[in-house]
Amino acid sequence: MAAGGDHGSPDSYRSPLASRYASPEMCFVFSDRYKFRTWRQLWLWLAEAEQTLGLPITDEQIQEMKSNLENIDFKMAAEEEKRLRHDVMAHVHTFGHCCPKAAGIIHLGATSCYVGDNTDLIILRNALDLLLPKLARVISRLADFAKERASLPTLGFTHFQPAQLTTVGKRCCLWIQDLCMDLQNLKRVRDDLRFRGVKGTTGTQASFLQLFEGDDHKVEQLDKMVTEKAGFKRAFIITGQTYTRKVDIEVLSVLASLGASVHKICTDIRLLANLKEMEEPFEKQQIGSSAMPYKRNPMRSERCCSLARHLMTLVMDPLQTASVQWFERTLDDSANRRICLAEAFLTADTILNTLQNISEGLVVYPKVIERRIRQELPFMATENIIMAMVKAGGSRQDCHEKIRVLSQQAASVVKQEGGDNDLIERIQVDAYFSPIHSQLDHLLDPSSFTGRASQQVQRFLEEEVYPLLKPYESVMKVKAELCL
């Protein structure tokens, strides 16, 4: 049975990233139509530049190519590739079939990587351009969430054990800070992308030097003109047959890092959902379990974690691919890159769409948070109580021993009897502590235990987050809708 299948058929496997999760716009960027249309555009740009620099290419040939950029006979191309065992030459023939007058000058002087690699770089750039505003929107939604809850005390956790208090907004800023680093890295790697350009079979530009009869300047002009037509500021000066596969490492490393950030955020949300302090959106008709109707599973956060793990592992592909590119190139890269580049971007696209949807509907339960604080705060307040007693004339050592005994009794009630923490009640009825009984409410005010959390939130948002989001103001209103 021949390899390949009808990918629109229910009898043929289709990647869930495309069929179930990723956005239509990201799927289109990695589609065959987008790819092969870009090949034709690159052939047109090459012909236009070659004509401008004096090669015998007519206006009629150029116009014929322009008129057929979208006229792609995919069936013919597939048949040609089956016959020739070469995808680029299959599309040269297919393009030439609908451009008979231009057929002889299509791909003039070029090698397969002229269309293959340059198209990949265009796709990487455009895919990054799709991700950047999506990530900015996630940051914006979380920034709104953090600002609104900047002063809401909550129990902090280290080692997932109760620690000092923080605020809900401050905790959210930990998430935002990681995503801001990801946004900066995505922008950097996007701006650092260079075009492969017009380089020939081993990167020496020998074929173009021959076409222009040894004119170095025209060869350099050709490279520059096509690079500018493709919208790049610069091209690699040095290439082998391909652009260095280190570029793929750079791009997928940034995406993998984004995956790590999203995994951490969504894990926190899942843990908070278990504590009943916070939940992701839950639709009115949504079913959490087929057997347990009360369940409210954090399905979206779980999906993000599941896909983020996949995204983090994909960076190993370009690392290994770059390491086995012998001399000017081997074909070890080809099949692998067809999979890992598309999957990385479709996965990143999915987790950003999902995280935006989550961040637009996060639900906080202040009463649950308050109750958990009441359970733990008495123990945390013991040092403040000791200091207040010393100020009232008591002995630190005597007070410490009193607190120690009462704390152990209260802990026994919590752990052995399943009761509430009654340390404060014990202190309130103990005559030894009568000098500070009137101060206990103040000493137990949760806001006095959150330090500068709310001020940190305000400063972080104003100095770091809002300036970073400013270039994306025009796209901030787009909502994230999930079908599944």
Rank of each mutant, 00 (worst) to 15 (best):
residue 317 D to H: 03
residue 360 E to T: 00
residue 204 T to Y: 10
residue 136 A to V: 05
residue 396 R to P: 07
residue 386 I to T: 13
residue 206 A to I: 13
residue 20 R to E: 05
residue 477 K to R: 12
residue 247 V to E: 07
residue 193 L to G: 09
residue 104 G to V: 06
residue 361 G to P: 15
residue 44 L to H: 08
residue 257 S to V: 04
residue 295 K to D: 09
residue 249 I to Q: 12
residue 87 D to E: 02
residue 313 T to E: 08
residue 180 C to S: 11
residue 216 D to P: 09
residue 61 Q to A: 02
residue 297 N to L: 14
residue 368 V to T: 11
residue 314 L to R: 12
residue 295 K to H: 03
residue 4 G to S: 10
residue 164 Q to S: 03
residue 110 A to S: 07
residue 246 K to I: 07
residue 248 D to P: 00
residue 41 Q to Y: 12
residue 114 Y to D: 03
residue 452 R to T: 09
residue 147 K to V: 04
residue 128 L to S: 14
residue 293 P to F: 12
residue 385 I to S: 08
residue 84 L to S: 06
residue 344 A to G: 11
residue 10 P to C: 03
residue 378 P to D: 14
residue 242 T to M: 06
residue 294 Y to H: 02
residue 157 F to C: 01
residue 219 V to T: 12
residue 473 E to C: 13
residue 149 R to Q: 01
residue 42 L to R: 08
residue 229 K to L: 05
residue 444 L to R: 11
residue 38 T to Q: 10
residue 45 W to F: 09
residue 320 Q to E: 08
residue 454 S to C: 12
residue 294 Y to L: 10
residue 388 A to E: 10
residue 63 Q to K: 08
residue 221 Q to V: 06
residue 65 M to E: 00
residue 104 G to S: 05
residue 72 I to F: 15
residue 231 G to V: 07
residue 214 G to T: 06
residue 345 F to W: 09
residue 458 Q to R: 07
residue 173 C to G: 03
residue 338 R to E: 14
residue 228 E to G: 03
residue 263 H to C: 15
residue 99 C to W: 02
residue 374 R to N: 15
residue 343 E to A: 14
residue 53 L to P: 01
residue 307 L to I: 11
residue 416 Q to D: 14
residue 265 I to F: 12
residue 72 I to P: 01
residue 283 E to D: 13
residue 102 A to K: 03
residue 399 C to S: 09
residue 178 D to M: 00
residue 96 G to D: 03
residue 206 A to W: 14
residue 368 V to A: 02
residue 12 S to V: 15
residue 363 V to C: 15
residue 282 F to D: 00
residue 31 S to V: 12
residue 414 V to E: 00
residue 123 I to C: 03
residue 345 F to M: 08
residue 27 C to A: 04
residue 337 R to Q: 10
residue 139 I to F: 11
residue 131 L to P: 07
residue 400 H to Q: 03
residue 296 R to N: 02
residue 381 A to T: 02
residue 409 Q to Y: 15
residue 177 Q to S: 12
residue 453 A to K: 07
residue 400 H to G: 13
residue 26 M to Y: 05
residue 302 E to P: 05
residue 97 H to C: 00
residue 207 S to Y: 03
residue 481 E to H: 04
residue 147 K to Y: 05
